[in-house]
Amino acid sequence: MSRRRIAVIECPEEIPCNPCETACPQDAIKVGQPITHRPHLDAQRCMGCGLCVAACPGLAIFMVDIKDNDQAEVTFPYEFLPLPEPGDTVTAVNREGISLGTAQVKARWQPKGADGTYLVTIALPAALAAEARGIRRPSCDN
């Protein structure tokens, strides 16, 4: 994995959808024709801007940034209340919603065109970067 923030696309099925391709200012994402093709990311071109993360209707794009000190940052789309604030300690979860331990909220922002969807960046040990894909909602008790 490259040592800077890049997109990770988890879009496993051939569904008719290409806003990620349209959103990318670097032409780093290719869906092509027909639009049911799965997106392909050119990691060299990706600048980690997050526009595709906010644009993806399936909330299926994340960003991962592996740092030098065994730490990593994972960015994911978030559409629940209450919103996590930078500095908050939160519980990171994997794709199944299972707890991976605590993480720190580094940033929260809304790129252009997000229309309500927030991007949240959390910091956690690099070993968890391939697993962590969200945080526990405060109201969720399982």
């Binding site: 559409e79 629940f80 209340l81 919103l83 229309d115 309500g116 969807t117």
Partner: peptide
């Protein structure tokens, strides 16, 4: 119960 606040609808 009324939904007083909503992440997308405000």
């Amino acid at each position: 119960m009324r939904i007083t606040n909503h992440p997308l609808l405000g």
